[in-house]
Design a protein around this nucleic acid. Sequence first.
RNA 1: GGUGCGAUAGCAAAGCGGUUAUGCCCCGGAUUGCAAAUCCGGUUAGCCCAGUUCGACUCUGGGUCGCACCUCCA
Length: 463
Amino acid sequence: MLKIYNTLARDKQDFKPIVANTVNMYVCGMTVYDYCHLGHARVMVVFDMVYRWLKASGYDVTYVRNITDIDDKIIKRAAENKESIHTLTQRFIDAMHEDADALGVQRPDHEPRATQYVPQMLEMIAKLESNGLAYQAADGDVNYAVRKFDGYGKLSGKSLEDLRAGERVEVASDKHDPLDFVLWKHAKPDEATEVQWGSKWGKGRPGWHIECSAMGTHLLGQHFDIHGGGADLQFPHHENEIAQSEGAHQCQYVNYWMHNGFVNVDKEKMSKSLGNFFTIREVLKKYDAEVVRFFILRAHYRSPLNYSDTHLDDAKSALTRLYTALKGAGNVDLPVQDGVDWNEPHAQRFKAAMDDDFNTPEAVAVLFDLANEVNRSQSAEAALQLKALAGVLGLLQRDAQEFLQGDAGENGLDDAAINAQIEARLAAKLGKNYSEADRIRKELLAAGIVLEDTPQGTNWRRA
RNA sequence: GGUGCGAUAGCAAAGCGGUUAUGCCCCGGAUUGCAAAUCCGGUUAGCCCAGUUCGACUCUGGGUCGCACCUCCA
């Protein structure tokens, strides 16, 4: 039985889908005005892992991850770049897909863009207004009247009084209450027509929170199983989503709320505002994408994850061990489908770990135990099982040789040059000229090439 | 100030009231011409103070420290 830590309950709970064998899942995606950083990589990889595990568990999953393609920052950036909103967002959506693909993240079943769901948002705002939860302020904005919604604060555990106490300096606005949030922003005179939609409240554009409520509802229904996102979205974003959706539909919105931890740098949250972020593509210049994926999955999704080159190096060494085991066992190459023998002890431990709130560190530990067995027994079956289990996490699916030898890179030696050196070394070895053989090996090592002599000949890999 | 989360060996990171986590690093042995890889073995833990218990890293209480949210943020 799968257990999921539900932020709503602040506890692990048995997972019971609304409709048997079916899971509807929504995850808050990116606001596309810049390249994704490692924090974004974590959300994508973590929920990709969840998606894969649910499917591996036999559920028919519909996974939605939205794209926010209309927002203040996007408008600002487009203006700075002197380009249209559409050009800007499309460029970064393409970049996001490139990054996600590299990390082995499967495409969600739906990737709705906010700009394509404005009618649904307006419809929802109208419902809120007729339910007495929304009002148009003097400045033209339509706001949500937070105090009219009873359950406000149930997700984040905040009371309205607490929020008041911590209230920061506010920009002057016509909100009835400082805690009210915007559903519909009235158009400003200097804004491009591209960011204006007509509505019964006048021209304008949607607020951030209503986007997710409308898209989630439209694609998954008024009540669905899982909603995920970064821990920083818990408040106010997800709290507001609940207020909107439950306020409009008068029924429970989501059963299980999942939040992943941050990627930290020097123990501090990686973020745009702190400027301490590394973009995915930046990191991928230095590290193999699978190493990055492994780095993310070997930590529990709710724990903080500290980023540093040292940690990536460590992850690389560890992943190398797994691939080495596969290579040693003849690099078994069979389809992943139906590959896992779930009755086998390692698979059972793996499943138990994954069913325990997606405990990937434990599941990865099982992979290492299996690798040890593969190395000891040289059993093709064990190797197959290792590859199949790792495949459930989206790992170890490449040709082992290819992973271990990697790319030559900018100034690296190419395969031909390496093989020529290996030949030369072999000749020296046959002539018992070990000092020459060792010199060649040392030279290659300095170039980042590690040699391994085996009874079948000399193998090489990139360090 | 309010709320929440965390503190495990050199580093990273899990489970568990009593029995080896796991990976990287380090040490010894096997193997190797020597290495590398691999195997076998080993060293290094549980922030502090109380309490519960036959027994606590694991439960309870207090403290200390760190982080996050309370504002856009994955």
